[in-house]
């Protein structure tokens, strides 16, 4: 019996994407744990990571991080391939598509706060669309839409402000993800 070791060649970018996706997955778990009055409304904390990735590394990296976050988050929450997973996926796809345009807006005028709000509306918009087409094929669904839009605006602003602050506080291009301040070299502790 031969034993073979398969070694995957990973680039520094792969490592960066993995770290950022891990941060995003962590935030989406926190998201799921926060109780909120209306089903379907979530703060979307993981989108803070998406904004930061978008600002620092560009749209393609943001797509990777979001995609990994949706899949890994779905696996961890036990909703992989369930309706909740597809809603989350459609929200991510919708907001990434819109962000591809939003991040080209002149930076002097539009920052992470704009991106976050636009992405939040695109997120809930594509989720409502999928829900209407597939899960609840009835217009009664749209009775809830105003509440979802209020939440999108509110959480969009809050997440955008947090993202803008984190981007401003560590502006260097190649630093590790947010909240992961570099540990002292001798600490050796695992950084969560």
């Amino acid at each position: 019996m031969t034993r073979r070791t398969v070694t995957l060649a990973t680039t520094p970018e792969d490592h960066r994407i993995a770290q950022l996706a891990a941060a995003a997955v962590g935030l989406s778990l926190i998201d799921a744990a926060i109780p909120l009055p209306l089903p379907g409304i979530k703060p979307g904390l993981a989108n803070i990571v998406t904004m930061i990735v978008l600002a620092r590394y560009g749209w393609r990296t943001a797509v990777w991080v979001s995609g990994l976050r949706v899949i890994a988050g779905g696996l961890l929450l036990g909703q992989f391939l369930s309706p909740g997973f597809f809603l989350s996926l459609s929200g991510a796809v919708g907001s990434l598509l819109v962000l591809a345009f939003a991040c080209r807006l002149p930076q002097r005028w539009f920052g992470p706060v704009s991106w976050s709000i636009i992405a939040a509306f695109a997120h809930i918009g594509s989720q409502l669309l999928l829900a209407r087409l597939w899960l609840i094929p009835h217009n009664g669904l749209f009775y809830m839409a105003p509440f979802f839009f209020v939440a999108a605006l509110g959480f969009g602003i809050i997440n955008g402000l947090i993202a803008a602050r984190l981007i401003a506080e560590s502006p260097s291009g190649d630093s590790p993800p947010p909240a992961a301040d570099p540990l002292p070299a001798d600490s050796g502790a695992a950084n969560v």
């Binding site: 002149p106 539009f110 920052g111 992470p112 706060v113 509306f121 105003p146 209020v150 402000l161 803008a164």
Partner: peptide
């Protein structure tokens, strides 16, 4: 916090608020 809001961001906030405003009568 307001230091992080760029001029256009206010416009996006206003547009979002307008969308919320018209969504109520449209949905109901």
């Amino acid at each position: 916090w307001s230091a992080f809001v760029r001029p256009g961001d206010w416009a996006v906030v206003a547009a979002g608020a307008a969308l919320v405003g018209i969504s109520f009568p449209l949905a109901w």
